[in-house]
Amino acid sequence: MSIFINNNTKLLVQGITGRDGSFHTRQMLNYGTKVVAGVTPGKGGMEVEGVPVFNSAADAVKQTAANTSVLFVPARFASSAIYEAIDAGIKLIVCISEGLPTIELVKITAYLKNKDCRLVGPNSPGIVSSGEAKVGILPGHIFKEGKVGVISRSGTLTYEIVDHITKVGLGQSTCIGIGGDPIIGTKFIDCLELFAQDNDTEAVVIVGEIGGRDEQDTAEYVKKYFKKPVFGFIAGKTAPPDKRMGHAGAIISGTSGTAAEKVKVFKECGIKVGDTPAEVAQLMKNELA
């Protein structure tokens, strides 16, 4: 089992004819993901890697019964592509695109309310359910089927930690990159609610970073409701205040959102924190292997 995506995922790639869209369509197909359709307005009728391209998401869903979409669309067109996917009846939208203005996410969040649809991202590297499906840009070869759920605000740091988990002999059930923006569709807690019910997930690792207080809220949630062991890592201990560290959401405002504050709350709430990515995997090995 897994969460969000699995063998039954039928994937629509929005922006499939672009450089990144076509490259990663091939990578996702190689991993075994059922990529059933692509959309690029004006390029309907084409094929990319054998996948039919449609002019609209609605057409693609009608013809192929796609239930999940992934976005490789330039930032300025990404919000309209998200609305299009919502209206086409897609159940899970994974937005890889980066650089959406924050106010767009405020509006999208409101539009999604009371709809049977979830957004992951923006600025997400994607989701992998090991051995079943890969949606996004995460490198497939570092994953191994296993019992650890991974939730992360980062991209390559996620790969680093996944790689360590694999190398200590544990594997991953599902790994979700929730995205590095200040406002995102799916947060740590949303993922934990699903991991709680997933029988194949025996433990979870949360990879957080400076900025905001999602990690603190998540830690309180873990303490109150989450029964499986949780491990953690926080990036940005050496980050100076009031400087954006790459991700739009990775900024310490004044004295709020520091790594030290997050590590402290994690520990107080029973989350085992590693000082380095290697140490996180070692902690997991000691307890789970």
């Binding site: 980062s154 991209g155 740091l157 380095t276």
Partner: peptide
């Protein structure tokens, strides 16, 4: 010099963790 913001922060932190001083993100 790192690819990705999260890993770049983690790299600075690691340098500091082992007793060094990072020059940059």
């Amino acid at each position: 010099v790192v690819n990705g913001a999260g890993l770049a922060m983690a790299t600075m932190d690691l340098v500091k963790h082992f007793g060094g001083e990072p020059a940059n993100f």
